[in-house]
């Protein structure tokens, strides 16, 4: 059996991280957590995950900046990212149409639908 896929959960809210982590692990994924973009970057550099779920509004380093850094980094840009955010719907259009980088692989609005995010996670790993 193949080793479980690893998902990096980046969110400043503990509740969300716990929720997602439980959700994914129940489905056989392995998870790691980071509170903001800076912490997430350290984790990735140590051991790249198979998938990232990424919040937008976070202290220290925002999801926007983190996303850009990943997607413009030749080694890391292949890691799929699901943006998981409470930011209004327009953000999806914005982050998906910037010429500096490709659109995110997935986009899930908060409050999170478990079914939606699991489907995406399975598809992208």
């Amino acid at each position: 059996m193949a080793s479980p896929k690893k998902i990096l959960i980046v969110d400043d809210e503990q509740d969300i991280r716990t929720y997602l982590s439980t959700l994914f692990e129940d489905q056989g994924f392995k998870t790691v957590q980071a509170r903001d973009g800076d912490e997430a970057m350290k984790i990735i550099q140590a051991e790249p995950p198979d998938l990232i779920t990424l919040d937008v509004s976070m202290p220290e380093k925002s999801g926007v900046k983190f996303f850009r850094e990943i997607k413009t980094n030749e080694q890391l840009k292949k890691i799929p990212i699901i943006i998981v955010t409470g930011v209004s719907e327009d953000f999806k259009g914005f982050i998906s149409s910037r010429h500096q980088m490709p659109p995110p692989e997935g986009f899930v609005a908060k409050p999170i639908s478990a079914e939606e995010i699991l489907d995406l996670a399975r598809k992208l790993t």
């Binding site: 509004s57 999801g63 900046k65 955010t85 409470g86 209004s88 327009d90």
Partner: peptide
Amino acid sequence: TTGMNSLA
């Protein structure tokens, strides 16, 4: 009201 914090 967009939900974006200052950094975002």
